Simulated assay, not measured.
Amino acid sequence: MPMKPAPAGIPVSDLIDNAIAELGDWRGETLARLRALIHEADPDVVEEWKWGKPVWSHDGLICTGETYKAYVKTTFAKGASVADPKGLFNSSLDGNVRRAIDFKQDEPIDADAFKALVRAAVAVNKADQAARAVKKKG
């Protein structure tokens, strides 16, 4: 079920809740679990709704949450710059910037490794923001 564009005046958290509920299957449960892990990893994360899907940001885009028939995908905007010691990235591996994880039905989620990726993505965003600030001053 494709996620709809954000209607005006509806809180983003409600849009994400509704999208999860509309799925009504393992994909909704998986997306809800990933959302919870993102919040555990970064309590200051900002939820947004862009491109018809949930997006999580902190000093820049962290990742998106996308649902397809056979998997739930999280695409990390700067994933190629994020250390992945547990090898969670399994999609979009040939890109110069993004990396993604496809979560299939009944596959376990390594919660600790996923939260480490989220924290690493936030660190990349913060470093990029700091570098831009220094460049502006110089």
Rank of each mutant, 00 (worst) to 15 (best):
residue 9 G to H: 06
residue 9 G to F: 11
residue 9 G to Y: 05
residue 10 I to F: 00
residue 10 I to V: 15
residue 10 I to M: 03
residue 11 P to K: 15
residue 11 P to R: 15
residue 11 P to M: 06
residue 12 V to P: 00
residue 13 S to Q: 09
residue 13 S to A: 11
residue 14 D to L: 13
residue 15 L to K: 05
residue 15 L to T: 07
residue 16 I to V: 15
residue 16 I to A: 10
residue 17 D to Y: 02
residue 18 N to T: 15
residue 18 N to Y: 06
residue 19 A to K: 04
residue 19 A to C: 11
residue 19 A to R: 05
residue 20 I to G: 00
residue 20 I to R: 01
residue 20 I to W: 00
residue 20 I to M: 01
residue 21 A to V: 10
residue 21 A to P: 01
residue 22 E to V: 02
residue 23 L to T: 07
residue 24 G to T: 09
residue 24 G to I: 05
residue 26 W to P: 13
residue 27 R to E: 05
residue 28 G to K: 09
residue 29 E to T: 12
residue 31 L to S: 05
residue 31 L to V: 08
residue 31 L to I: 01
residue 32 A to T: 12
residue 32 A to R: 13
residue 33 R to Q: 10
residue 33 R to K: 14
residue 33 R to F: 00
residue 34 L to A: 03
residue 35 R to I: 03
residue 35 R to F: 01
residue 36 A to I: 00
residue 36 A to M: 04
residue 37 L to Q: 09
residue 37 L to A: 01
residue 37 L to F: 07
residue 39 H to K: 13
residue 39 H to I: 07
residue 41 A to T: 08
residue 41 A to N: 09
residue 41 A to V: 12
residue 43 P to M: 12
residue 43 P to S: 09
residue 44 D to G: 06
residue 44 D to F: 07
residue 44 D to A: 15
residue 44 D to W: 04
residue 46 V to P: 01
residue 46 V to K: 15
residue 46 V to G: 10
residue 47 E to R: 09
residue 47 E to I: 12
residue 47 E to C: 11
residue 48 E to Y: 04
residue 49 W to L: 09
residue 50 K to N: 14
residue 53 K to S: 12
residue 54 P to E: 12
residue 54 P to Y: 06
residue 55 V to C: 11
residue 55 V to G: 09
residue 55 V to L: 09
residue 56 W to V: 13
residue 57 S to G: 05
residue 57 S to E: 13
residue 57 S to Y: 05
residue 57 S to V: 03
residue 58 H to T: 01
residue 58 H to K: 15
residue 59 D to C: 13
residue 59 D to Y: 13
residue 59 D to Q: 08
residue 59 D to W: 10
residue 60 G to N: 10
residue 61 L to P: 00
residue 62 I to D: 00
residue 62 I to E: 00
residue 62 I to N: 01
residue 62 I to S: 02
residue 63 C to G: 03
residue 63 C to V: 05
residue 63 C to D: 01
residue 63 C to F: 02
residue 64 T to D: 03
residue 64 T to G: 03
residue 65 G to E: 04
residue 65 G to R: 07
residue 65 G to L: 14
residue 65 G to T: 09
residue 66 E to F: 06
residue 66 E to I: 04
residue 66 E to Q: 15
residue 66 E to R: 08
residue 66 E to G: 08
residue 67 T to S: 15
residue 67 T to C: 14
residue 68 Y to I: 13
residue 68 Y to M: 14
residue 69 K to Q: 10
residue 69 K to P: 02
residue 69 K to N: 07
residue 69 K to L: 07
residue 70 A to N: 15
residue 71 Y to E: 03
residue 72 V to S: 03
residue 72 V to M: 01
residue 72 V to Y: 06
residue 72 V to E: 09
